[in-house]
Design a protein around this nucleic acid. Structure first.
Lengths: 372, 372
DNA sequence: TGCCGAAGGTTATACGTAAAACTGATGCCT
DNA sequence: AGGCATCAGTTTTACGTATAACCTTCGGCA
């Protein structure tokens, strides 16, 4: 029934033809019996002392009556602004990045800024260069987990750039906003050491990236101060449940077997749990597993995952605020966002009869992270 | 150092008036020694027979040299087109909708159309009107799972509207694009009946919505032709793992206990599996569980979920193509998209000694969902 | 009385682009 | 020789908005 107006049947292959002719500010002016300038003044709220209150109300009523909405293209053209930023994320289907987007979009909306989303350079096909086509319209870019060459392409555009979870040094970005994942790793390590684990495995993302390198360093540093603790580091075949499963299967099938597996991601942790079960190991009685992110997956699986909760929405919002600050030539707040370990069911005391028990040294005295 | 000079005024006038001095087509014209019109002609590719090849090449070189990118606002203003559509989804953090978006965005990109995402009426705060926050004038709207009042608000905008997964009749939409979930339900029912189940439970989304009503009807219809089959229908407390867990706990704790639980969503199915385990029931030996969507969650949990795979990306793409067809006054393809049951580990033969059937046989032989 | 300054508007203009309408200069046909 | 098509461009205009610059009335006041 909806009266969708037939488009102009010219042979022209218009991508998207005119829909209904929308009322312009001039139409509103005509209806209210004033000039177009007055309409603009009133509707932009800059009329105090320049337009009589009664006239202003008349204009507003006319606009409402006609269902007037300003033409954004015309406004942006006139103001020479774009009020739009690009957010580049590896994949929206990863819940973490969906949450980052949500937070960023909300923070942007507060400042009346739009967000264009690129769900990865590959996401829209390699033929379309998102940066090329989008650059013309953007004020700035927030990028997450970019490969160096893509990053360089972004910077070539001369657009203000904010990087998420990247090295503050090695980047051409105007600012970086990070999560305090080093501290997260410290919390995980303290948690597991406190539970008596002495042989940890670190199931890494298997991706070359600053964040993941940072976590590895933080874990190493924490364990360095705990004597007699062994660490096995293994890169996952793929950053997915399946990848975690495959790699953890090898890891937990070998000897000596670690009593706890620290994973860089909840997906990997879920995979590790599956691997343990397939090998006949119980979680957490035989092996503890920890994840990172606190995806909804973490509480969907059995047992529920001990994990590091990342404030994804806040992270996106902080990135957006940093970019807007940069655009306003203000200093951006680049303090790392705090993260928190959420102990749940997938981690527990180290088994008494560890398959790896270091001979000689009594595992008793070294209990560093002693809970009082 | 990137000299960042762009500025988005903070609501009041800021001293810094404009963004970076970006070259215009006039600058290109000056550099190439031609008029602005010629630049436009050449760069839009409409110069054949109107501009000499040598001149065209000169223009292109000048544009490249200056790093010229057309001003999208000006172009859109001139062409009176918007080349942007709004996609409304309940929540991006739901992987299904993230995939719908991805597919829609890809289909849009093929036609040089942009997508503005509106992650639920609640997503950006209730005060914000979707049209206002869409930082573009829109050509049309694709909406998914809308409450009737929100839907009416959308339609008031007078924009061409395509609905996803909605009744073709009761909607003001110009077109609807659906998944063939009735057939999906039929496949699930056939699968479970084939495995010998005679007491099914239907754990519904607990949301009033056309799709879910459709599934219930389809399940009823299929079971009607199977004599002696009992169906218990229970609405979930909430469309989430926790909701599924809570409701399934009551469902599986009662008597007589169903031997299979058909869930409207993978989240519910995951919750049902957790509930079964907490009650000491094995899946699928004691109770079979099926889901819907085939989220990545489905293969992350143990056992992996038998589920109905929905082609989410195709769905989004089909919605976008339907909208673009409507805008072109072409007929939209509104055939429902086929879905497919993926039998995995969470469903198996009905137990011999069902709580509802005659006792006698040993629950031994179960294990693999051995089906030829 | 004459002048000033507000109040309450209006007119005119610019933003960058696309494209319609126009202009010269050729070359070719009859 | 005259006319006309063709080529290779240029001038001009319009899109809808925001705002600077410009007009009228007034009332007040020295």
């Amino acid at each position: 029934m909806s009266a969708v107006r037939a488009s102009i049947p010219t042979g022209e292959h218009t991508a998207v033809p005119h829909a209904q002719p929308r009322p312009t500010s001039r139409d509103v002016a005509r209806a209210a019996g004033v000039s177009q300038a007055t309409v603009s003044l009133v509707l932009r709220g800059k009329w105090h002392g320049r337009v009589a209150p009664g006239t202003a109300e008349t204009v507003r009523a006319a606009a409402r009556e006609l269902g007037y909405r300003p033409n954004v293209a015309a406004r942006d053209l006139r103001l020479g602004r774009r009020r739009t930023v690009l957010l580049v994320v590896p994949a929206l289907t990863n819940e973490f990045f969906a949450r980052v987007y949500t937070g960023a979009a909300r923070a942007a909306a507060e400042r009346d800024v739009g967000v264009v989303l690129y769900p990865s350079p590959e996401g829209l096909g390699p033929a379309r260069d998102p940066f090329e086509s989008a650059r013309a319209t953007l004020d700035g870019v927030i990028a997450s987990s970019m490969a160096p060459h893509a990053l360089a392409a972004l910077h070539d555009g001369g657009l203000p750039l904010v990087m998420l979870d990247s090295s503050p040094e090695d980047t051409p970005a105007a600012a970086t906003v990070n999560l305090d994942l080093a501290d997260g790793m410290r919390q995980v390590a303290a948690h597991l050491l406190g539970l008596g684990h002495r042989h940890l495995a670190h199931l890494t993302a298997g991706v070359e990236s600053w964040t993941f390198a940072l976590r590895a360093r933080a874990l190493d540093a924490t364990l360095a101060s705990a004597p007699g603790v062994r660490l096995t580091r293994v890169p996952a075949a793929e950053l997915s449940v399946t990848g975690g499963l495959r790699t953890a299967e090898r890891l937990l099938g070998g000897e000596p077997r670690p009593t706890a597996v620290v994973c860089d991601d909840d997906l990997l942790a879920a995979g590790a749990c599956k691997a343990a079960r397939r090998l006949g190991l119980r979680v957490p009685e035989d092996v503890s597993v920890t994840g990172c992110d606190d995806l909804s997956l973490a509480t969907a699986v059995e047992p529920e995952l001990t994990t590091v909760r990342l404030p994804a929405e806040d992270f996106g919002a902080a990135g957006m605020r940093a970019l807007l600050a940069v655009l306003d030539a203000h200093p951006a707040d680049t303090r790392p966002l705090p993260v928190r370990l959420l102990p749940r069911a997938s981690s527990g005391p180290a088994p008494r009869t560890g398959g790896t028990a270091a001979p000689g040294a009594a595992p008793r005295s070294g209990g560093a992270a002693g809970r009082s």
